[in-house]
Simulated assay, not measured.
Amino acid sequence: MASQQSQSIQTLLEAEKEAAKVVQQARQYRVQKLKEARTQATKEIEEYRKFKEEEFKAFEASHVGTTHSAQVAVDKDTEVKRAEISKAYGSHKDTVVKKLLDRVVLVNPELHRNLKKAE
């Protein structure tokens, strides 16, 4: 009976060692799978980033022409308005200078309307 108990204990110890090995292997497998998942996720993120960058560059390239043509149109319009302003300046310059000089030089002395005359 002692021999049978000793053999049972020995079997239990071996089963416990085997279970510990299985648990250790499961832990290692889990760690390995987590590392693989991280690596795969990083790779997918990098591929997605490259895809979006290419998509953005294509979008930017397709809209650069639109921006350039809009800039050219604005520049032309600005030049036309600038020419109009210069023309108006040239045609009214003499009149404005004459009016300013008349106001400064030709002074008509009179009492201010708020000043009461002394009686």
Rank of each mutant, 00 (worst) to 15 (best):
N108G: 00
E18Y: 09
E54L: 05
A37F: 00
A41E: 09
E16D: 14
Y29D: 15
A19I: 04
Q5Y: 14
R38G: 09
S62Y: 09
K99R: 13
E60A: 11
E79Q: 13
K76Q: 12
A15G: 02
A61Y: 03
Y29N: 15
S6D: 15
L13H: 10
K87G: 00
V107F: 02
R103M: 12
S6L: 14
N108P: 01
L101K: 05
K87N: 03
L34V: 08
S91Q: 10
L111M: 13
K43Q: 11
K33G: 01
A83G: 08
S69C: 08
L34Q: 10
T39I: 05
S3I: 15
D75L: 07
D94N: 13
T11L: 08
P109M: 02
R49D: 03
D75I: 08
K17V: 13
R82T: 06
G90H: 05
F56A: 13
H68Q: 15
N108V: 06
R30I: 11
E55G: 01
K33I: 02
K87R: 06
R30N: 12
S6I: 13
F59C: 03
R38H: 10
E55F: 00
A58C: 03
K52A: 03
L111Q: 10
A118S: 11
V97F: 01
P109W: 00
V74L: 10
A19E: 11
Y89Q: 15
V104Q: 06
K17A: 14
K93Y: 11
A19G: 05
K17S: 11
V105L: 08
T95K: 09
L12E: 09
S86N: 12
G65Y: 02
H68R: 13
Q25F: 05
K116G: 04
R30K: 14
N114I: 11
A73I: 00
K33D: 07
V74D: 06
A26Q: 08
Q10H: 12
V107W: 00
R113K: 10
K93V: 09
K57Y: 03
E36F: 01
Q24A: 12
A20W: 10
D77V: 01
